[in-house]
Design a protein around this nucleic acid. Structure first.
Length: 395
RNA sequence: GGUAGGGUGCCCGAGUGGCCAAAGGGGGCGGACUGUAAAUCCGCUGGCGGAAUGCCUUCGAAGGUUCAAAUCCUUCCUCUACCA
């Protein structure tokens, strides 16, 4: 493929690219480039936010380049540098390994296994002694560290920053030296860390890597970035129908972003689609339904996508009962309604009474509003709580 | 080491003796509506209790003062900033 075309593909959708000129120089050499992605095995649950970056890596692979996936086992074992959040717990060696395996299973739903080299950064970081660390640390200044947005902000807000936190970007940068990456990719929040890699590489006599960041996508709430801690994510391991449903719950305004960053639909078609949405000739619902299918396809396949959509139409548009409903085994056939809800997993009786009073409880499509009514149930009756919880009564 | 300021419900945050199960916001949940689990609007949001001006648990921890404590006192834990 000619150079221009290649650069265009690589540039598409990127947020930062440092720098295009250097990228062209590297591509001119004609050899496969080594594209680095560092991952944190303490949180092995991938979601669509990660998929944005993985899609880009896949594009590199399709252009014939080599992806190097670095599992940050060393950093995971040490834990959260700020020591304040539970989000990055210290992990044992075994836990890290387990997570790393699960990570790879998920990653390879998008990436090409053949063109991916997997490395653990403990391989080189474990070998460093204190002197090595200080020598590495000497190559970067505090002032430059404080350029990083979150450090800067926390420093100004009188929030704590531990010295250890300064070490993390350096460790990550050293990974780039160890594997001799030509390009490193990450989310926009990684820009600073990736740039440190450039400096540290040149200090070690290497050509500095190209840095490329991908936009962060907002989660299903439409506001905050997609993240497990905000519970607004669509996970690789979510069932197809939930992937589809969650996509349907994103705000309309977010649709095009998902389309552009995560679907395989080509750019000109998306432009037309976007225009259609703007002038009203495309129904936003249909547009979102297609997006739902695309996302299921991304994580599963075409067939699952069709199934998930059919299920959605059945349950939410026709307000029908889902095809598969979890069973609820009862000891007796007569129960007070509130107690029945508690048995189904509603956390407290007060909560159950609330749900009933608010009109959220139906049995066989009939609304019941008295929490104390003793209900006589038959096997096969359908208990519905709210819009999304269904149980089939078993006796 | 010294000084100052913090630790409140899922989260943020108000509250400095009773009117506090604790304002407000976010999130979550339920309903209406719809084009969807979008948007919008309304309601709910510690537990127990078929109800109560009822009981229990919750305001960093443990004690204490008081008829009464998230609020006052003591000790402790913990976080932060500034000065060393």
């Amino acid at each position: 493929m000619d150079l221009k075309k290649q650069v265009e593909i690589i540039k598409n959708n990127t947020f930062d690219l440092v720098s295009e000129a250097e990228l062209i120089e590297k591509l001119k050499k004609g050899r496969p480039l080594r594209i680095k992605l560092g991952v944190d095995p303490s949180r092995p649950d991938l979601h669509l936010g990660h998929a944005v970056v993985l899609k880009k890596l896949k594009e590199f692979q399709d252009l014939g380049h080599q992806v190097v996936l670095i599992i940050g086992d060393f950093t995971a074992r040490i834990g959260d540098p700020s020591g304040r959040s539970a989000t990055r717990p210290m992990l044992t060696m075994e836990a890290v390994k387990e997570n790393a395996i699960s990570y790879q299973e998920q990653v390879f739903t998008i990436l090409d296994r053949e063109k991916t080299e997997v490395r653990y950064n403990g391989e080189w970081l474990d070998k460093m002694n204190f002197e090595d660390v200080i020598r590495l640390a000497a190559k970067y200044t505090v002032a430059r560290m404080l350029e990083r947005d979150d450090f800067d902000k926390r420093y100004k807000d009188n929030q704590p920053i531990s010295v250890a936190e300064f070490m993390y970007p350096l460790a990550q940068a050293y990974d780039s030296v160890a594997i001799q990456s030509d390009v490193e990719i990450g989310g926009t929040d990684q820009l600073f860390n990736l740039l440190v890699g450039r400096k540290i590489q040149t200090d070690h006599g290497l050509e500095s890597q190209i840095v490329l960041t991908m936009p962060i996508i907002e989660g299903t709430d439409g506001n905050l970035k997609m993240s497990k801690s905000y519970d607004n994510y669509i996970a690789f391991t979510d069932e197809p129908k939930n992937v589809y449903g969650k996509v349907m719950s994103i705000p309309d305004t977010l649709m095009m972003k998902y389309y552009r960053l995560l679907s395989d639909i080509d750019k000109t078609e998306l432009d037309t689609l976007e225009k259609g949405l703007a002038d009203g000739s495309v129904n936003p619902r249909d547009c979102k339904m297609r997006l739902g299918r695309e996302m299921v396809k991304l994580l599963y396949n075409e067939e699952k996508a069709t199934e998930a959509e059919a299920e959605f139409v059945k349950v939410f548009q026709k307000k029908d009962v889902p095809t598969e409903i979890p069973g609820l085994k009862l000891e007796t056939d007569t129960v007070k309604l509130a107690d029945l809800l508690v048995l189904s997993g509603v956390p407290s009786k007060s909560e159950a009474k609330r749900l009933i009073k608010q009109g959220g409880v139906k049995i066989n499509d009939v609304k019941f509003e008295d929490p104390f009514e003793a209900i006589k149930l038959n096997a096969g009756d359908i208990l519905r709580i709210g819009k999304r919880r269904f149980y089939k009564i078993e006796l």
